[in-house]
Computed example of a mutant assay.
Amino acid sequence: MNVKKLASFFICSLMLLTFSPMLERVEAHKESAAIEDKQQERELVKELEEHRITELHFVTGLDEELSSKPTFNEQMSKTQRSASDDVGEQMLKNLNATGEKEWNSSVQEFAQQLPIDEEAKETLGNYLSYDAVKENISSSLHSSNDLTEALTLSLNEEGLPIPFAEMIARTLVFLLY
């Protein structure tokens, strides 16, 4: 019985020695990716500021692109807002009705019109992608904060600076509610 315990201990120790450096490399890679993401976010914000791209550009540009999509127009014409409606639920309903393909193509078309570099356009597209928007709205649904505040905090947790996160949050509420 002792031989089995000793063999088990030896095997476990050997596995730890073998996989420990691998785990350290994985952690180092995660840290490196997080640093790179932060750099991309800073670069995006810097470029938007340099080119004086404001919330008005986002609202009008995305609204124009989305309005050219029949599914978005159809859903928004059906939407009847009332004070009792849950804003987040209605936004998700409108996003879902617009559809992933239509939403993402509108975001990409909008991003391509901006005078920023390709990497910044890609970063912007990632933050405004259908999946990212849906995830942020969903995570903000049960917040005790106002939905715009909750969306801002959610976007800030992803790494966006507060002023930019606020701009994106207000744009999403305008477009989807």
Rank of each mutant, 00 (worst) to 15 (best):
N126G: 03
N145T: 02
T60D: 01
E41I: 08
N94D: 07
S32T: 15
P70T: 08
G125C: 05
G99K: 07
R81N: 06
S138Y: 00
T18Y: 13
S143E: 06
I53A: 02
E24L: 15
A111I: 08
S140F: 01
Q80E: 07
E135P: 00
H51F: 06
V26Y: 11
V87S: 07
L66H: 07
K78C: 03
E89I: 03
T79Q: 01
L23E: 14
M22D: 03
E47G: 04
T79P: 00
E89L: 07
Q108W: 06
R42L: 11
F58N: 04
S143L: 03
E122N: 15
A150P: 02
Q80F: 09
A150E: 04
H57K: 02
E149Y: 05
G61C: 02
Q108K: 15
V107T: 13
T98P: 05
I116F: 11
T54Q: 01
A28T: 13
T123G: 04
V26H: 06
H29C: 06
S138F: 00
A83V: 09
D37K: 12
D131K: 13
E119G: 12
M22E: 10
S140G: 01
T71K: 08
T152H: 05
L153M: 08
P115K: 11
E49P: 00
W103E: 10
E89P: 00
V45T: 15
S154W: 05
E64V: 13
F72K: 01
E49W: 04
M91N: 07
L141G: 10
A28E: 15
E122S: 15
N94V: 13
S105E: 14
L114P: 14
K134L: 05
D85R: 03
A150W: 04
Q80S: 09
L151E: 03
I116C: 08
L95S: 09
E149V: 12
E109M: 10
I116Y: 12
F110L: 12
A33Q: 09
Q75T: 02
A132H: 08
S20Y: 11
R81F: 12
N136I: 00
T60G: 00
P70K: 01
Y130D: 11
E27L: 13
S138I: 00
V87N: 12
P21A: 07
S20N: 09
E65P: 01
G61W: 02
T152N: 10
T79I: 00
V133G: 09
L66E: 03
S138K: 00
S82C: 01
S77A: 11
H142W: 02
P115M: 07
A111N: 10
V26D: 05
T18E: 13
E119F: 05
A111W: 03
E31L: 15
K78E: 12
L48P: 01
E50L: 14
N96P: 03
P21Q: 11
S32Q: 15
L95V: 04
